[in-house]
Nucleic acid binder design. Structure first.
Length: 683
RNA sequence: AGCGGGAUGGGAUAGCCAGGAGAUUCCGCCGGGCUCAUAACCCGGAGACCGGUAGUUCAAAUCUACCUCCCGCUACCA
């Protein structure tokens, strides 16, 4: 690896974060894959040898959990999604040079090799830890099979990360008050031998790495606090069946943690590519560092790529990556997308609307800075497609080529003017700089700016007022500009660039062109062009917006409309508890009728409401997570059932003295049928 | 509250890391031009004291401190 400007002598390997094989692809996923694809194509434009590899992430507990729910094997479940991804990506012109999956032979073998190297190099140690265990189901509960309370911030958290609170990665055994996500049973901790990778021994290396690595600033900044603190060793084994078996001794029933074999897929796919296509030696790239490895990821997995992964590579004597580029998220109409609320634009949905993939590619790759979140709305989509692609690029290409075809039957016989040559050369320079900064937005917009210059240039010279001899040099300039635009735009809109390419009579594909071709003379003869881009009409935007809105509304009303019990929600009903409690145990609960007197939001909390509830003997202050689910103004006067003798708790600094009973995710408040007085005992 | 990301003309964006010319570009608005072209294109104009306060500096959108407001983090979503 070097930190020299692209193009370098060594090949580049661009990777995209592995899609997790448990759901459909949406516009948010596409941002990573499109950006990485455009970056790869862009590097090639600079003359850099570059391949783009990726694969499906098949292992881990969420897939095991989902597959179990469906009653299929994890492998079948994951493969189904893997195959779907393989079909979807090319439809967006996302073209991997190799696309595999983490469960295939190459990755399985290579992952085991990595682990053996770590063992040989002394980076693995064994430690007895507490692992959550469901005694009733007789089952170990790795990662997301368990949830509970985060030991660092006290928030509710998943077994492997504090998703609601401090975002920390949690090691097995860390989570407090563990509960099984399968049965809802309280879990107990049992002692168990597990394998650990000594991140602590790699701290110096990681600190150096984070300062050397290129890419987006968020990738460099976010893990800083973590790396400078005390690194905990990483538990690399799990008690489950689905995954890659631990290769060493005495760990027969353990599989490797999913984040071990997932990034190794980057190497595996490179290896598969090498074996298929001899123009790249995977070992020299990954082991000797004679290559430029660039990881494109979502900003939610920065830690994995700036801490675990470089540690894993170093411990196995591999070279380090050159860059980690973390893309921002995609918002819809200004709000975060949500798959369960159906606030999303699905990949297939976009295509079904009949839009060309290149339009979305352009939008998504150039709408904002690489690491910034980008907002998607159909309105904005139409605006950018119409004004930038259709009006500027499409119109310039069309008017220039039509003029050339009608008056000259192709490229006029003339020399390119100094002005245009300089302009194109400037665009090439800017473009090269932008790509070296991993700045796709600038690169893409530079291509459009060149087309804008073209419009200005043809306007200023008014070839339609000139005779052919005088017009020839102007049109010659314009055709050159068209060619340059096609080359520069190709990484973003590959199919559209090819369309221009054939319109100007160039052989082959614009994919093979490099920026040097921007100034190469275009081919001679060509006929009349066709319009490149169709505009998105206003009423179409309206229609799409309505569709999106009603989809979102349907998605959220499903949740609070109990009459409309879908199949999906039916299967999500928690199983009934098998264990019976004694009548005495039940008597321990002091359930009372209460009447809400006041309700107000708790400062700083999204969900919490502070209630004052009359329970006959006294008025209690109770905090309940119902702020977003009920109109607080309507609550006073409502009769509720409360647990009066629940231990006190402090939430957001407010004491809660009891608990309001409510049903389900929507906090449907339990009330009384008649008019029992506040304080009446419930039995 | 914590973590992360923001706040720049009416809307959307760039510039901030490496402080210095008239603060970029797109949409919209006003006026004009052109008519080869997808009612497109081109030119000109109005419109921002760059969230607030204080500081560093010859010089601050950019650096520092504090503050205000917004967004995501509850269904695993990049």
């Amino acid at each position: 690896m070097t930190h020299e400007d692209f193009p370098t002598d060594d090949p580049a390997v661009v990777t995209a974060g592995l899609p997790y094989a448990n759901g459909d692809l949406h516009i948010g996923h596409l941002r990573s894959y499109v950006n990485a694809d455009a970056l790869t194509r862009g590097l090639r434009k600079l003359g850099q040898q570059a391949i783009y590899v990726c694969g499906s992430d098949m292992h881990g507990t969420p897939i095991a959990v989902e597959a179990e729910k469906e009653g299929v094997s994890p492998e079948a479940f994951a493969l189904r999604h893997h195959e779907q991804y393989e079909e979807t990506f090319p439809q967006f012109n996302v073209e991997f040079d190799q696309y595999g999956h983490t469960h295939d032979e190459t990755n399985t073998a290579l992952t085991k090799e990595f682990v053996r190297s770590w063992e040989d190099n002394g980076y693995v140690h064994e430690k007895e830890i507490n692992v959550a265990y469901d005694p009733e189901a007789d089952q170990w509960l790795p990662d997301r099979f368990v949830e509970g309370t985060c030991p660092y911030c006290g928030e509710h958290a998943r077994g492997d990360e504090c998703d609601e609170g401090c975002q920390r990665h949690l090691e097995p055994g860390e989570i407090e008050e563990p509960v099984s996500t399968i049965t809802g049973n309280p879990a107990e901790y049992r002692k168990r031998e597990h394998k650990f990778l000594r991140l602590s021994a790699l701290q110096d290396h990681l600190q150096g790495f984070i300062n050397r690595v290129e890419g987006t600033s968020n990738a460099q900044n976010q893990p800083l606090e973590w790396i400078e603190g005390e690194l905990q060793d990483l538990c690399i084994t799990r008690d489950m069946d689905w995954g890659i078996d631990y290769p060493g001794e005495g760990a027969d029933d353990l599989v490797l943690y999913v984040w071990v074999d997932a990034p190794i897929e980057y190497v595996s796919t490179t290896k598969q590519y090498s074996e298929r296509d001899g123009d790249l030696d995977w070992e020299s790239v990954w082991k000797n560092g004679d290559g430029e490895v660039v990881h494109v990821i979502g900003r939610d997995i920065i830690q994995h790529h700036t801490v675990y992964w470089p540690a894993m590579l170093e411990a196995a004597d591999y070279a380090e990556p050159r860059a980690v580029c973390a893309v921002g998220f995609v918002n819809i109409d200004g709000k975060g997308l949500s798959t369960s609320k159906n606030r999303a634009i699905w990949a297939q949905e976009y295509l079904d609307e009949g839009f060309h993939p290149d339009l979305l590619r352009y939008y998504i790759a150039t709408a904002s800075g690489f690491e910034r979140d980008v907002n998607f709305s159909w309105d904005r989509f139409a605006e950018r497609v119409n004004s930038e692609l259709a009006d500027v690029v499409g119109n310039f290409v069309y008017r220039a080529l039509l003029f050339a075809a009608r008056n000259f039957g192709g490229t006029p016989d003339a020399r390119v003017s100094d002005e245009v040559e300089t302009e194109i050369a400037q665009a090439m320079d800017d473009y090269e700089d932008a790509l070296n900064d991993y700045d796709l937005q600038s690169a893409g917009q530079r291509a459009v700016a060149l087309a804008r210059f073209g419009n200005e240039y043809i306007q200023r010279n008014e070839p339609w007022k000139l005779d052919d001899d005088e017009a020839a040099p102007v049109i010659r300039d314009c055709v050159q500009l068209v060619k340059a635009v096609a080359v520069l735009l190709q990484p973003f809109t590959p199919e559209k660039a090819d369309a221009i390419w054939s319109q100007i009579g160039e052989p082959d594909s614009a994919a093979a062109a490099t920026i040097g071709d921007c100034l190469q003379a275009p081919a001679g003869e060509f006929g009349e062009p066709e319009e490149l881009f169709t505009k998105v009409e206003d009423d179409r935007v309206e229609e799409l917006d309505e569709k999106l809105q009603s989809k979102i509304e349907a998605g959220s009303s499903d949740e609070d409309d109990e009459a409309d019990v879908s199949e999906e929600s039916a299967t999500e009903l928690e199983p009934l508890a098998d264990e019976r409690v004694s009548f005495e145990d039940f008597q321990d609960l002091d359930l009372r009728v209460g009447e809400i007197q006041t309700a107000e939001g708790v400062e700083g909390a999204d969900d919490l409401a502070r209630l004052e509830v009359d329970i006959g003997h006294e008025v209690r202050q109770i905090v309940a997570g119902i702020k977003q689910l009920h109109d607080l103004d309507d609550l006073p006067g409502t009769r509720v059932v409360i647990v009066a003798n629940l231990e006190k708790a402090e939430l957001f600094g407010v004491e809660s003295n009891g608990m309001i009973l409510a049903a389900g995710e929507d906090a449907d408040l339990l009330t009384t049928h008649g008019d029992s007085e506040p304080g009446t005992k419930v039995k």
